[in-house]
Simulated assay, not measured.
Amino acid sequence: MGVKDSSTSQQAAEFTAFVRETGTQLHRAAMLLTGDHHATEDLTQAAYAKVFVHWRKVRRTENPLAYTRTVLLNTFLSHRRPRRSAEVPAEVTPPDTGHEPDPGQRVDLLAALRTLAPVDRAVVVHRYWEDRSVAETATDLGLTEAVVRTRARRALQRLRPLVDIPERTLP
Protein backbone atom coordinates (compact mmCIF):
# COMPACT_ATOMS: atom_id res chain seq x y z
CA MET A 1 0.00 0.00 0.00
CA GLY A 2 1.53 3.30 -1.08
CA VAL A 3 1.41 6.69 0.60
CA LYS A 4 -1.33 7.82 -1.76
CA ASP A 5 -3.51 4.77 -0.93
CA SER A 6 -3.00 5.35 2.79
CA SER A 7 -3.90 9.02 2.46
CA THR A 8 -7.01 8.20 0.43
CA SER A 9 -8.24 5.60 2.91
CA GLN A 10 -7.59 8.00 5.81
CA GLN A 11 -9.64 10.71 4.05
CA ALA A 12 -12.44 8.21 3.40
CA ALA A 13 -12.42 7.22 7.08
CA GLU A 14 -12.51 10.90 8.16
CA PHE A 15 -15.39 11.59 5.78
CA THR A 16 -17.30 8.54 7.03
CA ALA A 17 -16.89 9.73 10.62
CA PHE A 18 -18.03 13.22 9.59
CA VAL A 19 -21.18 11.81 7.96
CA ARG A 20 -21.95 9.74 11.07
CA GLU A 21 -21.59 12.82 13.28
CA THR A 22 -23.61 15.19 11.10
CA GLY A 23 -26.01 12.92 9.21
CA THR A 24 -29.01 13.22 11.51
CA GLN A 25 -28.76 17.00 11.71
CA LEU A 26 -28.45 17.47 7.94
CA HIS A 27 -31.20 14.94 7.26
CA ARG A 28 -33.61 16.84 9.53
CA ALA A 29 -32.77 20.14 7.88
CA ALA A 30 -33.27 18.54 4.45
CA MET A 31 -36.65 17.15 5.57
CA LEU A 32 -37.78 20.60 6.63
CA LEU A 33 -36.60 22.05 3.33
CA THR A 34 -38.16 19.42 1.07
CA GLY A 35 -41.10 18.13 3.09
CA ASP A 36 -40.78 14.76 1.35
CA HIS A 37 -38.95 11.67 2.58
CA HIS A 38 -37.57 10.66 -0.81
CA ALA A 39 -36.51 14.19 -1.75
CA THR A 40 -34.85 14.48 1.67
CA GLU A 41 -32.78 11.36 1.02
CA ASP A 42 -31.81 12.61 -2.44
CA LEU A 43 -30.91 16.09 -1.18
CA THR A 44 -28.82 14.77 1.72
CA GLN A 45 -26.97 12.32 -0.51
CA ALA A 46 -26.36 14.96 -3.19
CA ALA A 47 -24.93 17.38 -0.62
CA TYR A 48 -22.63 14.75 0.88
CA ALA A 49 -21.53 13.65 -2.59
CA LYS A 50 -20.53 17.21 -3.45
CA VAL A 51 -18.67 17.57 -0.17
CA PHE A 52 -16.91 14.22 -0.64
CA VAL A 53 -15.52 15.31 -4.00
CA HIS A 54 -13.79 18.25 -2.30
CA TRP A 55 -13.20 16.59 1.09
CA ARG A 56 -9.45 17.36 1.18
CA LYS A 57 -10.27 21.06 1.01
CA VAL A 58 -13.42 20.90 3.16
CA ARG A 59 -11.79 19.05 6.07
CA ARG A 60 -9.25 21.88 6.40
CA THR A 61 -11.92 24.58 6.68
CA GLU A 62 -12.71 26.13 10.02
CA ASN A 63 -16.16 24.52 10.10
CA PRO A 64 -16.83 21.61 7.73
CA LEU A 65 -20.42 21.34 9.01
CA ALA A 66 -21.17 24.95 8.06
CA TYR A 67 -19.67 24.31 4.63
CA THR A 68 -21.84 21.21 4.24
CA ARG A 69 -24.96 23.10 5.37
CA THR A 70 -24.26 25.69 2.69
CA VAL A 71 -23.89 22.94 0.09
CA LEU A 72 -27.19 21.43 1.28
CA LEU A 73 -29.01 24.77 1.00
CA ASN A 74 -27.50 25.62 -2.39
CA THR A 75 -28.34 22.16 -3.71
CA PHE A 76 -31.92 22.54 -2.46
CA LEU A 77 -32.28 25.96 -4.05
CA SER A 78 -30.79 24.85 -7.35
CA HIS A 79 -33.10 21.80 -7.52
CA ARG A 80 -36.12 24.01 -6.79
CA ARG A 81 -35.50 26.11 -9.88
CA PRO A 82 -37.86 25.25 -12.73
CA ARG A 83 -36.66 22.43 -14.93
CA ARG A 84 -37.67 21.56 -18.44
CA SER A 85 -38.10 17.93 -17.45
CA ALA A 86 -41.48 16.25 -17.54
CA GLU A 87 -40.48 13.91 -14.73
CA VAL A 88 -43.38 13.20 -12.37
CA PRO A 89 -43.25 10.92 -9.31
CA ALA A 90 -45.25 7.71 -9.71
CA GLU A 91 -46.68 7.79 -6.20
CA VAL A 92 -46.43 9.91 -3.11
CA THR A 93 -45.58 8.11 0.12
CA PRO A 94 -46.32 9.90 3.38
CA PRO A 95 -43.28 10.42 5.59
CA ASP A 96 -42.62 7.81 8.29
CA THR A 97 -43.64 9.60 11.47
CA GLY A 98 -43.84 6.62 13.82
CA HIS A 99 -40.95 7.81 15.99
CA GLU A 100 -42.01 11.44 16.35
CA PRO A 101 -43.62 12.60 19.61
CA ASP A 102 -46.50 14.34 17.80
CA PRO A 103 -46.81 13.38 14.13
CA GLY A 104 -49.61 15.90 13.61
CA GLN A 105 -47.34 18.83 14.38
CA ARG A 106 -44.64 17.50 12.08
CA VAL A 107 -47.07 17.08 9.18
CA ASP A 108 -48.50 20.56 9.81
CA LEU A 109 -45.03 22.10 9.84
CA LEU A 110 -43.91 20.29 6.68
CA ALA A 111 -47.11 21.26 4.86
CA ALA A 112 -46.77 24.86 6.03
CA LEU A 113 -43.11 25.05 4.98
CA ARG A 114 -44.07 23.82 1.49
CA THR A 115 -46.22 26.94 1.08
CA LEU A 116 -43.13 29.16 1.31
CA ALA A 117 -40.88 30.11 -1.58
CA PRO A 118 -37.66 28.05 -1.57
CA VAL A 119 -35.48 30.94 -0.40
CA ASP A 120 -37.94 31.79 2.40
CA ARG A 121 -38.02 28.14 3.44
CA ALA A 122 -34.22 28.06 3.46
CA VAL A 123 -34.11 31.21 5.60
CA VAL A 124 -36.60 29.82 8.12
CA VAL A 125 -34.92 26.42 8.38
CA HIS A 126 -31.44 27.89 8.61
CA ARG A 127 -32.38 30.67 10.99
CA TYR A 128 -34.75 28.87 13.37
CA TRP A 129 -34.26 25.11 12.96
CA GLU A 130 -30.47 25.27 12.67
CA ASP A 131 -30.45 28.16 15.19
CA ARG A 132 -28.07 30.23 13.08
CA SER A 133 -27.63 33.97 13.56
CA VAL A 134 -28.88 36.50 11.02
CA ALA A 135 -25.29 37.14 9.94
CA GLU A 136 -24.51 33.42 9.51
CA THR A 137 -27.73 32.86 7.57
CA ALA A 138 -27.01 35.85 5.34
CA THR A 139 -23.49 34.64 4.63
CA ASP A 140 -24.55 31.05 3.94
CA LEU A 141 -27.38 32.06 1.61
CA GLY A 142 -25.58 34.94 -0.07
CA LEU A 143 -28.13 37.51 1.12
CA THR A 144 -27.84 40.71 3.09
CA GLU A 145 -28.75 40.68 6.78
CA ALA A 146 -31.66 43.03 6.08
CA VAL A 147 -33.04 40.62 3.47
CA VAL A 148 -32.73 37.70 5.92
CA ARG A 149 -34.57 39.61 8.65
CA THR A 150 -37.32 40.71 6.24
CA ARG A 151 -37.77 37.27 4.67
CA ALA A 152 -37.79 35.57 8.08
CA ARG A 153 -40.38 37.99 9.47
CA ARG A 154 -42.66 37.66 6.45
CA ALA A 155 -42.29 33.89 6.32
CA LEU A 156 -43.19 33.55 10.00
CA GLN A 157 -46.22 35.77 9.44
CA ARG A 158 -47.36 33.38 6.68
CA LEU A 159 -46.64 30.30 8.81
CA ARG A 160 -48.36 31.42 12.02
CA PRO A 161 -51.94 30.85 10.78
CA LEU A 162 -50.96 27.41 9.45
CA VAL A 163 -49.19 26.06 12.56
CA ASP A 164 -49.07 26.96 16.22
CA ILE A 165 -46.05 29.32 16.32
CA PRO A 166 -46.10 31.49 19.42
CA GLU A 167 -45.51 35.20 18.96
CA ARG A 168 -42.21 36.43 20.37
CA THR A 169 -42.57 38.92 23.15
CA LEU A 170 -40.15 41.75 22.73
CA PRO A 171 -38.58 43.32 25.84
Results as ranks from 00 to 15, higher is better:
K4N: 08
S6K: 15
S7R: 14
S9L: 15
A13L: 10
E14Y: 04
F15G: 01
R20T: 07
T24E: 13
T24M: 11
Q25C: 05
A29G: 11
A30F: 10
A30N: 08
M31W: 06
L32I: 00
D36S: 12
H37Y: 11
H38I: 09
A39H: 04
T40S: 10
D42S: 13
L43D: 05
A47Y: 01
K50W: 04
F52Q: 03
F52L: 14
Y67Q: 09
T68V: 10
T68P: 00
L77E: 03
R80P: 07
R81H: 08
R83H: 14
S85N: 11
V88N: 08
V92Y: 15
T93H: 14
P95V: 00
T97D: 14
Q105P: 01
V107I: 12
L110N: 06
L110Q: 12
R114V: 02
A122P: 11
V123C: 07
V124R: 06
V124N: 05
H126Y: 06
H126L: 11
R127K: 12
R127N: 02
R127A: 01
Y128W: 13
Y128G: 01
Y128F: 14
A135I: 00
A135P: 02
E136G: 03
E136I: 04
G142V: 12
V148D: 00
T150S: 12
A152C: 03
R154A: 11
L156I: 02
R158S: 05
R158I: 04
R168F: 12
R168T: 15
T169N: 08
P171C: 05
P171L: 05
